[in-house]
Amino acid sequence: MEITLTHYLLLAMTVFLTGMVGFVVRRNAIVMLMCVELMLSSVNIVFAAYSRFHANADGHVFVLMNFAVAAAEAAIGLAILVEIFRRRRTVNVDDLKALME
């Protein structure tokens, strides 16, 4: 079986959906952050695959940038989470209810 672009895309979609479902079903904030990372990674797969497919570097560049941004985002997220944990002693997002109607 030849591995085609479609396979890469299907893989990416699977990963993406996994991340998405994980995001909406898990309560642990850290897990949710990881799910976001998972989704971003799936995007990287798509970019890399297409980059290869189109034989240009645009996609690869994107992937690199994506790493950086994802890392920054995770860092900020964790920082805020630490602050929250200090006060609340929990990372369960369902407990974040100071702001609601």
């Binding site: 909406v24 079903v25 309560r27 949710m32 369902d94 974040l96 109607e101």
Partner: peptide
Amino acid sequence: LRLFQNGMVRFYAWSFT
């Protein structure tokens, strides 16, 4: 409609999804 705004991130994500 206000009741949708229940403060739960996961619910927000559901609505998003």
